[in-house]
Nucleic acid binder design. Structure first.
Lengths: 241, 241
DNA sequence: CTTCAAACGGACCGCGGTCCAGTTTTGTTC
DNA sequence: GAACAAAACTGGACCGCGGTCCGTTTGAAG
């Protein structure tokens, strides 16, 4: 079951994440609107957009990301090449549009999902769960993410990534209020970068569990608390030292 | 004085860094050979290689990295296009060759330079100095580094980056011997990635001093020790509350 | 001088991206 | 509901660049 069907109806960009001026854990105004683009398109444009996304997803499923050529997608969707560019800007835009759905899913999870990822758990637990969630989500879509990362600096300004960063900043403010949380958030997020994950898993052969443990350990060090008891079970922290 | 002159005679790749099976601080066998390539080339090939690098450097100095087109470089060096590709493999290879010199400089500094960057200082001090050195070196060559980063995953396997990672691993083994130092090294190095630096300085307008302070703080947290001097002397009033 | 691996150079290809003339949709007015 | 004008969309020709290929040239060893 590949992401053809549900990716089709997703829009290209997430809505701008409201920057939280509150360092408190107010239920983080969930701004995961449904599909902000899509709607205000002309009928034919919307149809073509859907066909293009579907075609792209099909190409990926059948021949890998490398086969996603703008011309190929256009042809597969029976649409002119210019249309693809008009709709998505460039290849990266198209690929990011394909990622949009899972971006939203993740965002919904940590904004309004069940604890420990969602609100309700202590910030430290949320941070742990957050990193792990990001880790696995990126691992799942690694090829697409790497392919979408032509200009490495562009990813960091993408709304979805900004949302991650903002969320992490909010959590950090509650955990280590005296630190430079914005900077620290970016730093920690960098260690979860798709390129890093790729290098560690594929190149160095590290299993995902090791990366996960590494994240847990890193969070503990940054927070200045001992790591939670066992490696795997996300229990409330028990000061054992 | 741009890097035209001395970059010209540098080779493309650093020699493979010997992986240290010693967790101790043996004087880290300095393997910064002079110019391993270059020598065994045919006379005309070596001459053309030099001319190409010089031409590329000139183009960058005059018109920015974007002007470094393989055709343009070939033309400026009065050489066929095929020659450029034969010599450097691809555009990224050419750009990395231009970075080779400063790669070696940095490597020499932390392998055999004066403390606290070089051997002789306590590992924790070395680690601090190391991060700061990397930070400023990357900042200095940001454009080139970003341009050379077409495939984001390729950078991480580059010998120069591997050398940084290895060195950091060695230091970490001495500082936090019970941690997963390989993983931690990569994690920490990721926070110094050119793309991250670019985003923080250019996009978010953070001054370099702030990044530097962030690194110092991060190291302290990871090492589990309080930061060296005062927490941070020139702190901008940025508790954005 | 002979010989040949190595290096050369430019024609060639595919793809990302631009452009614009022509077409379709939408909303408005009668 | 028909006519119409503006706005939006379409598609394919076109361009530049990265990268490949292959026939030709050249340096150096015997």
């Amino acid at each position: 079951m590949f992401p053809v069907l549900y990716a089709v109806f997703m829009s290209r960009a997430l809505p701008p994440f409201p920057s939280p001026q509150e360092p408190f854990d107010v239920p983080e105004l969930l701004e995961v609107g449904p599909a902000p683009e899509e709607a205000c398109l002309r009928a034919d444009a919307a149809r073509n957009r859907a066909r293009l996304l579907e075609a792209a997803a099909r190409l990926i499923a059948e021949h890998g990301v490398a086969a996603v050529t703008m011309e190929a997608v256009a042809a597969a969707a029976q649409v002119g090449k210019g249309t693809v560019f008009r709709r998505f800007g460039d290849r990266t835009g198209l690929l990011m549009a394909l990622l949009d759905h899972s971006d939203r899913m993740l965002q919904a999870d940590f904004l309004a999902g069940p604890p420990p990822l969602g609100p309700g758990a202590p910030p430290l637990d949320r941070l742990r769960a957050f990193g792990v969630a990001v880790l696995y989500r990126y691992a799942e879509k690694l090829d697409l993410l790497l392919a979408a990362q032509t200009e490495p600096t562009r990813r960091l300004s993408h709304p979805a990534v900004s949302a991650l960063r903002t969320h992490m900043t909010v959590l950090l403010r509650q955990i280590v209020p005296d630190a430079d949380c914005e900077l620290l958030a970016q730093t920690l997020l960098a260690s979860l970068d798709p390129a890093v994950i790729h290098h560690q898993t594929r190149r160095c052969g590290m299993p995902m569990e090791r990366l996960e443990a590494g994240w847990i350990d890193l969070v503990a060090r940054v927070a200045g608390t001992p790591p939670p008891q066992p490696l795997r079970s996300p229990e409330p922290p028990r000061p054992s030292r």
